[in-house]
Amino acid sequence: MVDWRQRFEAPARAASANSAAAQWVRAAVSRVTTPLLPDDYLHLIDPLWSARELRGRIVSITPTTDDSATIVIKPGWGFSFDYIAGQYIGIGVPVDGRWTWRSYSLTSDPDTSRGDKTVAITVKALPEGFLSTHLVNGLEPGTVVRLAAPAGEFVLPEPLPEKVLLVTAGSGVTPIMSMLRTMARRGRHGDVVLVHSAPSADNVMFGDELAELADRGVMTLHLRYTGSDGRLTPEGLAALVPDWADRQTWACGPGGFLDMLTGAYEKAGHPDRLHIERFALERGSHGAQGGTVTFGTRDKSIEVDGATTLLEAGEKAGVQMPYGCRMGICQTCVVMLDKGCVRDLRTGVEHVEGERIQTCVCAAAGDCTLDV
């Protein structure tokens, strides 16, 4: 039998594993509070103390632009601040009586986080983004949230390459911001170029700080305003950074933007020099047709469209589903596909019965049954 509780508590266990002291205290508390759970007592002392999950408290929400805000979080017991600039964190927020999860890049630099014991994310409210809009406009300081440990491979190497190019669009600048802040704090002034695209000057997240970092020599800054200059193209990139193909490049932004860069580096014969971070699913871009999703062990079914992930389908049907990052990275949501066909919303690849699938990035391509 699957131990669902154990699976849901995995993010907290993974984060707390770095602290031997935390593990010892948790074990001791578990023994003295049996048969009740440690949390039955710990939450009476401090709501951030939990033996089962990572928690945090919202410290502040500060507008960055008209539709974005920086959210500072004070994590509780068991959280490890040994993250790397460029990584993301999972955040679960209670909305209308249920916990809703998304992952966002950390914009704080690790050195500052270890000092003041807080982390920061910067969120852009998207028209289709239910949770992002709530985080920017509906969240209040003092709210207790759930957290998943920092993760992700979109990080700079040590030591830095001789020449670095950072190419971002919109909220894609958020993981880069953590990198730049870390470089500035550590006094690293190398050959680093940032090319950032935004609709206008008013839409540039961290606009004043980016200009200040450029003035301090942390990087060379090129801003492109797509409302007047048009979208960035390979030719436009070459005009701004003539040696772009010779640089190790980190890029983040919308799917079409990253596809353009991928094609440019492949054409130049240097695809290995491009490192990308994709934020969200390009929902429906590969034409998943939807269908009836059946959760075999729960005897529940639900009709969904081709843009609804199997994880979301399960949650709508009232089925407890394992999950972690909700971005197709951490593998926590993997289940067996018993019948039918599903499609990966990121790549369009189809999976058939007998395969293990990621429910957070796959949608029904016709009727299907999951071993859940």
Rank of each mutant, 00 (worst) to 15 (best):
V2P: 15
R5C: 12
P11R: 06
R13H: 12
A14Y: 11
A17L: 11
A21I: 12
T34I: 04
I45L: 14
P47D: 04
L48N: 04
S50E: 04
S50K: 03
I58T: 05
I58P: 13
T65R: 07
D67Y: 04
I71K: 00
V72Y: 00
P75L: 06
P75I: 03
D82G: 14
A85M: 07
G92K: 02
W101E: 07
R102K: 10
T107I: 07
S108I: 04
D109G: 13
D109Q: 13
D111W: 14
D111L: 14
S113C: 15
I121Q: 10
T122N: 09
L135S: 11
V136S: 01
V136P: 09
N137H: 10
E140D: 12
F154A: 02
T168S: 15
S171C: 08
G172N: 04
V173W: 05
M177D: 04
M179C: 07
R181V: 08
G190E: 15
V195H: 01
V195A: 00
H196V: 02
P199Y: 06
P199T: 05
S200M: 08
F206T: 03
G207M: 05
G217R: 08
M219A: 11
T220A: 12
R224E: 08
R224D: 05
R231G: 13
E235P: 14
A238T: 15
P254V: 00
Y265H: 04
E266C: 03
K267Y: 07
A268R: 04
L274F: 07
L274W: 01
H275V: 13
A280Q: 10
L281K: 03
S285F: 12
V293W: 07
G296R: 13
R298P: 10
S301R: 09
V304W: 03
V304N: 00
V304Q: 01
T308K: 12
M321A: 01
P322D: 02
M327S: 06
V334H: 09
C341F: 01
D344F: 13
D344R: 11
G354V: 03
R356K: 12
I357Q: 00
I357S: 00
G366Q: 03
D371P: 14
